[in-house]
């Protein structure tokens, strides 16, 4: 790990001013992903701004009947909250299917959104990887890794997002609220927080360096059943080969793109009265990549939509 300065942020303004003053700084919340990458020197911040003690961990009702989840609420706290469990079970289940209890106890809402891909070539500093070292090439293309993007990949990067939680947030139309050192507050759908790789795969999100996630807001849950399904080689403690979140008539796919992937074509097909399997197939018209991965996603989405129509799972 490269040496770095460590700052304990006293409040949000302090955190933002520290960030504005130190261009090579990174905010540190739970640290479960950032410290992992720093040990491998994939991340090399000059300064860590510890925001872990800031008062951003509350979960509260919004005027519109939704929930506002502070950026520092841990994954475990969010998944255990009775309001999340009863109104947004798809979110609780997505979180609970990720990582381990130990990691979820530490990982924050904001940190989960900021986690980087777990592509094995990204994780080995000796390998070419455009996301890690722009211009070095993409080892995943033509490589052994199966977890490559079906949607939105570019010629420079085919890595997928590792976040289960964000897939559920996308299907719930959640918004991410951020603030910058100049005081500007911004909200955008969680779906657009993450960039597709294009020609700059090293940039994961639309956040500026001095931009801090304050909260995620959930609108009231849509009517209809909610379903979370995650496919993986072992039964726990491993990332998804593919995942799907369904809430009412909305569908989002996970581990298939650099961002949580709202399956708009599927949703449109469902709205037009298509059967679940046809609707799932509709999304794949725009997919690139391996046939087997496409089959998996089609079958998984179709089955999850059917399950949601039977009421979903609490």
């Amino acid at each position: 790990m490269k040496p770095f300065a460590f700052e304990r942020a006293r409040n949000v303004d302090h955190a933002l001013s520290l960030a504005a003053a130190a261009p090579g700084a990174r905010f540190l919340a739970g640290g479960t992903n950032l410290l992992d990458l720093m040990k491998l020197e994939i991340e090399q911040p000059d300064t860590l701004i510890d925001v872990g003690r800031l008062p951003l961990a509350d979960i509260s009702e919004t005027a519109g009947g939704g929930l506002r989840i502070g950026a520092l609420a841990t994954n475990s706290v969010v998944a255990s909250d009775p309001r999340i469990r009863s109104r947004y079970p798809v979110l609780a289940r997505a979180i609970l299917s990720g990582a381990s209890v130990q990691l979820r106890n530490k990982a924050s809402m904001g940190g989960n959104l900021m986690q980087r891909t777990r592509c094995s070539y990204f994780m080995d500093p000796a390998m070419p990887c455009n996301k890690r070292l722009p211009g070095s090439g993409c080892s995943a293309m033509g490589g052994l890794s199966q977890a490559t993007a079906l949607f939105g990949a570019s010629e420079f990067c085919a890595a997928v997002s590792a976040s289960d939680m964000s897939v559920a947030l996308a299907v719930l139309d959640a918004e991410v609220e951020t603030v910058r050192a100049d005081g500007s507050v911004r909200r955008r759908p969680v779906e657009t927080l993450h960039r597709l790789p294009g020609d700059a795969p090293q940039v994961d999100t639309d956040l500026a360096p001095d931009e801090l996630i304050l909260a995620v807001e959930l609108p009231p849950p849509p009517s209809g059943g909610q379903v979370w399904r995650k496919v993986r080689a072992r039964a726990s403690y491993i990332g998804a080969l593919a995942s799907v979140a369904v809430a009412g008539d909305r569908v989002a796919l996970g581990a298939v793109a650099a961002r949580p992937w709202r399956a708009r074509a599927t949703e449109a097909a469902l709205a037009g009265g298509a059967a679940p399997s046809e609707a799932a197939e509709a999304e794949l018209a725009s997919a690139s990549g391996e046939v087997g991965r496409k089959s998996l996603v089609r079958r998984l989405a179709s089955d999850a939509i059917q399950e949601s129509r039977k009421g979903g799972r609490s």
């Binding site: 777990r118 094995s120 994780m123 080995d124 000796a126 390998m127 080892s139 033509g142 490589g143 052994l144 890794s145 080689a233 072992r234 039964a235 726990s236 403690y237 491993i238 990332g239």
Partner: peptide
Amino acid sequence: ALTESNAVDPRYGSFLHQDLGGYLAPVHAD
């Protein structure tokens, strides 16, 4: 039978999996 596998990347000579998040020994839930 179900999870454990590694492979040599024929371009670099490295193992595809170099950590316990990639090389899948069974966990308790298995």
